[in-house]
Write a protein that binds this DNA or RNA. Structure first.
Length: 896
RNA sequence: GCGCGCGUGGUGAAAUGGCAGACACGCCAGACUUAGGAUCUGGUCCCGCAAGGGGUAGAGGUUCAAGUCCUCUCGCGCGCACCA
């Protein structure tokens, strides 16, 4: 396609101008703002101002990217453009806008590249960041680059390590339900020796060490968190994972389960996203019930959400890993049990779930006593009971639980009805609420009670008898926080005589050692273990050789942006309270992919709550409003991937159509949250629109001059832009009422749509304006200037260039260094009022005619005019009018 | 299986319960042109020459009025998935 306008000169020109001026620098309270800065001029600020003299804040954040070697794909600019448009819109409205960008740069690819080539991951990371930054800058986003952060920069991860120490040195006080410094811990009376106290203390820390079965991924050479394992495979790469007991650092996120659920009610996220988090946390209310084992001292405790069905418990099941299995198994069953345990243990979780259609299990030979009716019920082990959930043991009520029912059918175990379903439903396998039956002993009867009533009554009875208690269980597990990798934050921890100990804060940052070889050691030790000089300290203690997961750096980067250069603290109190307090507490708008719904967003909320408890931040939630942009598919409607060959490269699009066209297209495709396919023809469409905007403003003859000069001199001479003159149709003339109406309809629509993130319809409103304005013989400069302010958030380069030309032509004194701080126009409803309006007339809801009435017409007048309509005559003939409905200014409906 | 979301032209999509299809792509016709993958003008939901009729996955319902609200069915997408 022929070049519609010289974006190849315009875009670099304005990007350089913004850089030189630091146009988008956001100012903290107390920072000296140069008088020449457009922000100071717009708000008449005199240098350093306290928070209460600054305009209200607007913090708009992107999920910062992992700078991969592949560079940007078209999905990145989607969210980035949306936030940039809103940043520019709020800036024009007079907000102090914080819009930063940085790099989530620790991660596996750089490390794997290092293993292959020996190149230090630092080098790869720097190269990739440079690539990403170049591409992002080419899009003309209004980021404050003075706040750029890089999670792999020691000046940054120093504070990641520092926050880890805060976690390490804190515990959750159940009395206050808040994290407190570990010093406030009250030791139990039986912890007398320092050793006992230490064990107690280490068991309370929010960062603690656990020897536990973890997901080991041999291909990645590391363990993974539960959340990083999907369908029994690693989320990254899809490699097999196996359960393996290892010593690991854990973070006690489970202590915050309830608050992580409750906090969702205070923030503006989509219902589906909140639901995903709730599901992940997986709260369920129920009861723990203790079952005495027949002929034994031991008890089995189970968790159930249906204590009301206790009378229907006809057997019990332990998970194969349950610690009582060995103890209670009868001699006759010992071989069978051992064999079953072995076969299950050898299975990966993938195999376990894949084979789940068919239930398996083995009888232990032991019996338990049902506490409510004293019946002796057999104890089985089966892998459908998970070791990691609840108590790892269940009471089986086959009549009213699908899984138990399948198991009972297969192994011929008794099925006893205890819930009566509503009429017409079979009680076998009925799992919903009903009426309790067959549930009475000499001590208690639940018969006739509804399921919720029965739950309450039995739970109270169990508590009274000491046989159980009400319990809340969560699916959420503690966060496995260590990785056997090189390219991550080293733990500021040393081991002395087998005990861990924190390094002092003053020793941070703790840098990773340099290595020749980045592979884990042959005996499965993390790569850091290769650096003997680094690991072994003079006093005989050794350093922790695990590193933190990639999530660590992204858990708090939004806080570092508030005060990115601070070298004495992770961030200052004053910037924090200015940027995080406001009409919306926390980040005002956070946009990113839904793939972070349960990982990053849950982890970051958890850290934030700990920091809140410790008084280090002032809001209980980090991200007030969150929007997930929808995935962009390839032109074939399939997910973009190299193997399908349907990947669209933003660089190619920018070379051919310019950054403004790419920005505009990304937003014009459809609603931000929707999944939508790419269509190159669509890019051409918005590109043509930008061309029309260009031609609305410039003089054709002068453009021909420019084109000839460029053809003679070669491309790339920005000076030539000066040859292009403003169109002679643009005059410093008063606007006609019709022109003002067109403008103000556009102002209204664009403003309202931006308030609701309806970028696509806002752009269509801009198109409507241009389609109209291009027909005007005389184009008032004042109207066009207001239009450019509306266009600026979407296509900033073009808007700036045309604004400059307009200023040179008409108000040389008003040449602003940028349009970015020009006040957003206010629409005047009075200008939109029409003298007459056209309203439709319906008969029985069907459109029959349209009439033109004075807009001030009363309902009675409208009715008179409507009934006089010629067209209506044939439809009304012979039919009595029952009713006439008049909606003022909207429509008339005649019911006959 | 459970939960959530969505079904509107040839395509991407618009539409506080009040004129369905704004805006754009594509297509058709025309103008300007040596040329057109540029630009401009007009047309474009379906049936019908027209008058008119039909139409928002399907069936029912509420309403003067339903793409929009309610019930069921079907289809698609996403998430969770032996969580007791």
């Amino acid at each position: 396609m022929r070049r519609q306008y010289p974006f190849h000169l315009i875009e670099p020109k304005w990007q350089r101008a913004w850089d030189a001026q630091e146009t988008f620098r956001a100012w903290n309270p107390g920072e000296a703002i140069p008088a020449t800065h457009p922000f100071a001029q717009r708000h008449q600020l005199q240098g350093a101002e306290p928070a209460d003299k600054l305009p209200p804040k607007f913090y708009v954040l992107d999920m910062f990217p992992y700078p991969s070697g592949a560079g940007l794909h078209v999905g990145h600019p989607e969210g980035y453009t949306a936030t940039d448009i809103l940043a520019r819109y709020r800036r024009a409205q007079g907000y102090n806008v914080l819009h930063p960008m940085g790099w989530d740069a620790f991660g596996l690819p750089a490390e794997q590249y290092a293993i292959k080539t020996g190149q230090h991951p630092r080098k790869t990371t720097e190269t990739n960041i440079a690539t990403f930054k170049g591409q992002i800058k080419r899009l003309g986003f209004s980021y404050d680059w003075s706040r750029e952060v890089d999670t792999t920069d020691p000046k940054y991860f120093r504070w990641t390590q520092w926050i880890f120490l805060k976690l390490y040195n804190s515990w959750l006080n159940p009395a206050t339900n808040k994290a407190e410094p570990i010093e406030t811990l009250v030791y139990p009376a039986d912890a007398k020796t320092e050793e006992q106290k230490r064990a107690f203390r280490d068991g309370k820390r929010l960062a603690f060490v656990q020897e536990a079965p973890v997901w080991w991924c041999a291909d990645l050479g590391t363990v993974l968190a539960n959340e990083e394992v999907v369908d029994g495979k690693s989320e990254v790469g899809g490699f097999p994972v196996v359960r393996k007991p290892m010593r690991q650092w854990m973070l006690r996120i489970t202590a915050y389960a309830e608050r992580l659920i409750e906090g969702l009610d205070t923030i503006d996220w989509s219902d589906s996203l909140k639901e995903m988090q709730r599901n992940w946390i997986g709260r369920s209310e129920g009861a723990e019930v203790h079952f005495q084992i027949s002929n034994s001292e031991s008890q089995i405790t189970v968790f159930t959400t249906r204590p009301d069905t206790l009378f229907g418990a006809t057997y019990m099941v332990l998970s194969p890993e349950h610690k009582l299995v060995g103890k209670i198994t009868s001699p006759e069953q010992r071989d069978a049990v051992a064999q079953y345990q072995k076969s299950v243990g050898g299975k990966s979780d993938l195999e376990r779930t894949e084979l789940s259609k068919d239930k398996t299990g083995v009888f232990t030979g032991a019996y338990a006593i049902n506490p409510v009716n004293k019946e002796k019920i057999p104890i089985w082990i089966a892998d459908y009971v998970l070791a990691s959930y609840g108590t790892g043991a269940i009471m089986a009520v086959p009549a009213h639980d699908t899984r138990d029912f399948e198991f009972a059918e297969k192994f011929n175990l008794p099925v006893v009805q205890v819930v009566q379903p509503p009429a017409g439903k079979d009680w076998k396998g009925f799992t919903d609420d009903g009426t309790t039956v067959n549930s009475a002993s000499s001590e208690i009867s639940l018969n006739g009670l509804s399921t919720p009533e029965a739950k309450k009554k039995i739970t109270a009875w169990l508590e009274e008898k000491g046989l159980g208690k009400k319990t809340i269980n969560y699916k959420l597990r503690d966060w496995l926080f260590s990785r056997q990798r090189y390219w991550g934050e080293p733990f500021p921890i040393i081991w002395k005589n087998g005990q861990h100990e924190a390094l002092p804060e003053s020793s941070l940052p703790l840098l990773p050692p340099s290595l020749e070889d980045y592979k884990p050691t042959a005996d499965g030790q993390p790569p850091l273990a290769r650096a003997k000089d680094w690991v072994n300290l003079p006093d005989g203690s050794v350093r922790e050789t695990n590193t933190m997961p990639q999530w660590a750096g992204s858990c708090w980067y939004y806080l570092r942006f508030l005060d990115a250069q601070n070298s004495s603290s992770f961030m200052g109190q004053a910037p924090e309270s200015y940027w995080m307090q406001g009409k919306t507490p926390g980040v005002d708008l956070y946009i990113g992919g839904v793939e972070h719904a349960v990982l990053h967003l849950l982890y970051a909320r958890f850290w934030h709550k700990v920091l809140f408890d410790l008084g280090l931040v002032t809001t209980s939630e980090p991200f007030y409003k969150l929007v997930n942009q929808g995935l962009i598919l390839g032109e074939d409607g399939q997910k973009m991937s190299k193997s399908r060959g349907n990947v669209v490269n933003p660089d190619d699009i920018m070379s051919e159509y310019g950054a403004d066209a790419l920005r505009l297209y990304e937003m014009f495709m459809g609603p931000l949250e929707m999944v939508k396919p790419w269509n190159n023809k669509g890019v051409e469409g918005v590109y043509r629109f930008l061309g029309r905007v260009w031609r609305l403003f410039v003089d054709e003859a002068s453009e021909t001059d420019y084109e000839q000069a460029e053809a003679a001199q070669g491309q790339g001479n920005g000076e030539l832009l000066a040859k292009i003159k403003l169109s002679a149709a643009i005059k410093d003339a008063p606007a006609t009422p019709a022109q003002l109406k067109t403008l103000h309809a556009c102002i209204k629509k664009v403003s309202g749509d931006l308030d609701h993130f309806h970028f696509n319809t806002a752009i269509s409103a801009l198109m409507v304006f241009v389609n109209e304005a291009i027909t005007w013989e005389t184009k008032p400069a004042s109207v066009l200037r207001e239009f450019l302010i509306l266009l600026q958030p979407f296509a900033p380069h073009l808007a700036e260039e045309l604004s400059e030309k307009l200023a040179i032509g008409y108000r040389p004194s008003a040449i602003s260094p940028t349009l970015a701080y020009a006040p957003w126009p206010k629409f005047d409803p009075a200008l939109l009022v029409e003298d007459t309006i056209e309203i439709p007339i319906q008969i029985n809801g069907k459109l029959r005619d349209k009439i033109v009435v004075p807009s001030a017409a009363t309902p009675a007048e409208i009715e008179t005019i409507a009934l006089a309509s010629e067209k209506l005559k044939s439809f009304l003939e012979g039919k009595p009018i029952k009713k006439v409905i008049i909606v003022p200014k909207r429509l008339v409906n005649i019911v006959v």
